[in-house]
Design a binder for these strands. Structure first.
Length: 270
DNA sequence: CACTTTGTTTCCAC
DNA sequence: TGTGGAAACAAAGT
């Protein structure tokens, strides 16, 4: 479930604990967590490295290491990074020990997350623009959308078009922008793209202010849950009343993704 | 057992 | 080669 706001929250809460510290030990409890490299090679390359900076791009978390490589974490659905938890729960897949005594526990109920060591740039190069960057303007969004003729919902989920938006925030964004999820990118007016650009920033920033969301699985590094889900207006609200007009929220499938919207506020035709 | 959840990958048609 | 769409896959909950 960690999408951009969740990963940003994790980054912010870990920042002061990890930057400047070194990895002194890594207990890999689930070998499947380590992508590409063998566990042994992974640990050998990681141990002793100092963390220069911590950064988020899209849904990825990067620990920039002193050797120029990065420890890259992709939390996917249920991955969480816990800061000095009292005990190691049964969902823990790895425990990272830092030089200041900090323990980072990668906990992941469905074991879908992955970590690996690589050049951060090779991952970032595949991502579209960062929606919270001030350089992310309607013109940038328009250019990113112009190469495609696909439903706008699918476009928002394509990480090479815009980085960091997942299924729930895509629905929230389209509701805020008053755009039907099946409208294709080539039918959007300049005005609608401007509204959409604003909606993306607003929805993501609001969620970050709420310290991240998710329906039930997102856990912050301090073990607390985020609260943004209580602010969801359409996501996972099938059959409930639209908070704007009272119409029953509908659920359709777009690109095999559950998609929630208000049929009255977000008409398919303009 | 069927279906849902999210994000990515793989496969296929054009 | 690129583009779009469908399906597969991961794991666990209902």
């Amino acid at each position: 479930m960690p999408e951009l706001p969740e990963v940003e929250t994790i980054k912010n809460e870990l920042l002061n604990w990890v930057v400047g510290q070194s990895f002194i030990q890594a207990d890999i409890l689930d070998n499947k967590l380590v992508h590409d490299n063998s566990v042994e090679e992974f640990c050998n390359r990681l141990i002793g490295q100092k963390i220069e900076t911590l950064e988020r791009r899209g849904k990825y978390l990067f620990f920039y290491l002193s050797n120029g490589q990065s420890l890259i974490m992709h939390l996917r659905m249920t991955g969480a990074l816990l800061l000095n938890p009292g005990e190691i729960d049964r969902y823990a897949r790895a425990v990272f020990h830092l030089s200041n005594g900090t323990q980072l526990v990668f906990s992941d109920r469905r074991r879908l997350g992955i970590v690996w060591l690589d050049n951060a740039q090779s991952v970032i190069d595949k991502l579209g623009p960062e929606p919270l960057d001030e350089r992310f303007t309607p013109a940038v969004l328009e250019q990113a959308l112009a190469r495609h003729q696909i439903p706008i919902k699918a476009a928002l989920l394509d990480q090479s078009i815009v980085a960091g938006i997942g299924n729930m925030y895509a629905d929230e964004t389209l509701f805020a922008a008053v755009i039907h999820p099946l409208r294709t990118t080539d039918t959007l007016s300049d005005k609608e793209i401007g509204t959409l650009c604003q909606a993306i920033k607003k929805v993501l920033n609001t969620a970050i202010d709420s310290k991240g969301a998710s329906v039930d699985t997102y856990i912050r590094p301090d073990g607390q849950q985020g609260t943004a889900q209580s602010g969801f207006k359409v996501a996972h609200r099938k059959g409930e009343s639209c908070l704007t007009c009272g119409t029953s929220i509908e659920r359709i499938t777009v690109r095999n993704r559950g998609t929630y919207f208000c049929p009255r506020c977000q008409p398919e035709t303009t």
